[in-house]
Amino acid sequence: MVTCLGDMFFPEVGVSVTRLLRRLGVTVEFPQGQTCCGQPMFNSGYHAGAARVAARTVELFRDAEHVVVPSGSCAYMVRHEYPALLRDTPARAEAERLAGRTYELSQFLVRVLGKTRFKASVTGRVTYHDSCHLLRGLRESEAPRTLLRNLDGAELVELPGGDECCGFGGSFSVRLPEVSTQILDKKLRNIEATGAACVVACDSGCLMQMGGGLGRRRSKVRPLHLAELLDGDER
């Protein structure tokens, strides 16, 4: 599942995921007609609209054995919000089935495939930002770290305050842009202090926020999706 932000702004992430999974022997399919998981509407309170989009998504993935999402918040949405959102609709059973088969990318690699060793596409120090929905929603901090610690070619340095929000929060970032930016500034100061060349995250939203701030500062630090980092030469 490659959802809106990833599709439109970060297509290279989807390409890396595809390549990575194929290399591990997974048959990758990409059901046509995907748009968005519905989270932007859901989080803003527009639940009828979110349910309409969710019901479509559920249908699209009916035949997939596992559904891999390179975005913690979209994976959280599908796993934890879909069943309740579609509770009173005909899509209910299918939504529950989908929730049980959906994985954020790092979780799929580590916990389903049991693959933890990859070759880094960059060299040097990288630091990791815990996306809120992956960390506190899906309760996952270990899978991405396992992958990063075992990386061949790059070294993980822990980010102080790595578990704190980057200030994205979807519509929050444009409803309260000043607050959002000040939260972001703190995050970026912490990132720059690590001396890392890249900040890695598992969520398009965080990457858009942190990347937007880093770009504006003309910082040397690059935002990088985990998939892109793992997509180095084969071992």
Binding site: F9, F10, P11, E12, R19, R22, R23, L24, G25, V26, T27, E65, H66, G100, R101, Y103, Q107, R111, V112, L113, G114, S121, V122, T123, L138, G153, A197, C198, R222, P223, L224, E228, D231, G232, D233, E234
Partner: peptide, 28 residues
């Protein structure tokens, strides 16, 4: 199209791999 972040090393071409069936347990 959008430029590669960080200086990546060259990417390996895909080769035919055996396809192990993914573990069907759902550890989560």
């Amino acid at each position: 199209a959008t430029g590669e972040p960080c200086d990546r090393s060259r990417l390996a071409p895909e080769s035919g791999h055996p396809r192990p069936k993914p573990d069907s347990r759902h550890p989560l």
